[in-house]
Write a protein that binds this DNA or RNA. Structure first.
Lengths: 232, 232
DNA sequence: CAAATACATATGTACTACATATATAGATAT
DNA sequence: ATATCTATATATGTAGTACATATGTATTTG
């Protein structure tokens, strides 16, 4: 029988005992309808109930701890926790470990999100938000050094993520930042000056204040045109 | 001294030995400039070099294995691997473990991505893709039962993700699917029939064939209006 | 009755022994 | 000489025991 390889699926025969323990535990957690905060049986009980050594059980438990599904305290035992998706992503996000394709994917994802959050911006924007953007733009226009300008550019876009009011997206962006940083070294982006109909942050802000979402999207696309041109 | 709580940062004094081993190892991996495929020293060597027991070292190594940063084979030792971000996400993605807020965030993220990928669609669409969408729409129009319609609706949108040519986004969507499924039970979405200017999949396809990205975005927004109306 | 102390308990760390899979070298047969 | 089979060495996987450490609970003490 040929072995078809699928994402994230191991053939049974190559599963170690700990793999099976992990699956058993996961089933157990689900069946018991545990919710975050609930405490679970202690290590020795779990090990005995499953007929394995404490060592192996601990290894399976370590996996869950690593994923943030359970946490443990001395003498207090272990309890279910609310996992943080992006925490793990963060631990793993070393650009050196990424393929070029995945980096390109993330790069595109950024553009996708920036184009996509426009509707959220118009639903959630407040006067305070607009003021904040105004401040950034003023600093940006006054900035002399290239690094200062870059910093404020990033701050402008980060603020847009904030205004979207979506904490998950905001964190996602923060985590992906190092990748964009890393990629910028490779990209040969033509400078804004070479671009005839360049859309400035100020124009975007004006539209966000008085315009409509559709208009904003069109201009955001123009604003990001240098990046879109890289995509084939 | 007050203890300020920050995302993903533990106070030093509460760090266990294994926590410190993990940090040490991570530094080591980075400094040695390991890339996927490189093999790393064996357990006992690492343990001795760091002056800890094999047990504790193994626990730290288990964490890396869980995150997909290293893998191990009997007698072959351990080697650096290319981690798969979404694999871990998948393991953790139990709607029961999500807060309402995070679910809402993901729900919005879906809308953001569907609005945002439009430009990628127009860059990457092929005749084959258009044909595939046509097929789905025909089946959809012929479908009688509600569940069949729903299935084909999902298939249409999934195909858009495929057409975007961004594998990472495609996987992301697949992983988030169960959440949307789960949420749909809670949402009171008014049916398409109640909607006067409802934009059908056929209209979207027409625009994708002959229209422009801007036009498509406007209509995609109308197509998703029932969902946008849920957002405050 | 409050504070200090002793004790019990569950996880954390260490050490040892052995199981298991696999690469390598060596022996055997064709 | 080549292929196949066998033995052995090796690194990870599993088991078991002992003790360390932190923390909750009960007890003693002022």
């Amino acid at each position: 029988m040929k072995k078809l390889q699928l994402q994230g699926i191991k053939p049974i025969e190559t599963m170690s005992q700990v793999d099976r323990i992990e699956i058993n535990l996961y089933e157990y957690f689900r069946n018991e309808n545990f919710i975050p905060g609930d405490s679970i049986p202690k290590e020795v009980e779990l090990a005995e109930a499953m007929g394995v050594s404490r060592t192996a059980m601990r290894e399976a438990l370590t996996r869950f701890k690593t994923l943030g599904i359970i946490e443990s305290k001395k003498n207090r035992g272990m309890s279910i926790t609310r996992p943080d998706f992006f925490q793990n992503m963060n631990r793993v996000l070393n650009p050196r470990l990424l393929t070029k394709e995945t980096m390109q994917d993330f790069f595109e994802l950024r553009l996708v999100i920036e184009m996509g959050i426009v509707d959220l911006l118009f639903i959630r924007k407040t006067n305070n938000d607009l003021k904040k953007l105004e401040d950034i733009i003023e600093k940006e226009e006054a900035a002399k050094s290239k690094s200062d300008k870059l910093k404020l550019d990033i701050e402008f876009h980060s603020t847009l993520y904030q205004i979207s009011g979506n904490y998950t997206i905001e964190r996602f962006q923060k985590i992906l930042m190092p990748i964009f940083d890393y990629m910028n070294h490779d990209l040969h982006i033509r400078s804004q000056e070479e671009n005839e109909d360049y859309i400035s942050h100020r124009v975007l802000l004006k539209i966000l204040e008085n315009g409509k979402a559709e208009e904003f999207r069109i201009n955001m696309h123009k604003h990001l045109i240098q990046y879109f041109e890289q995509i084939k």
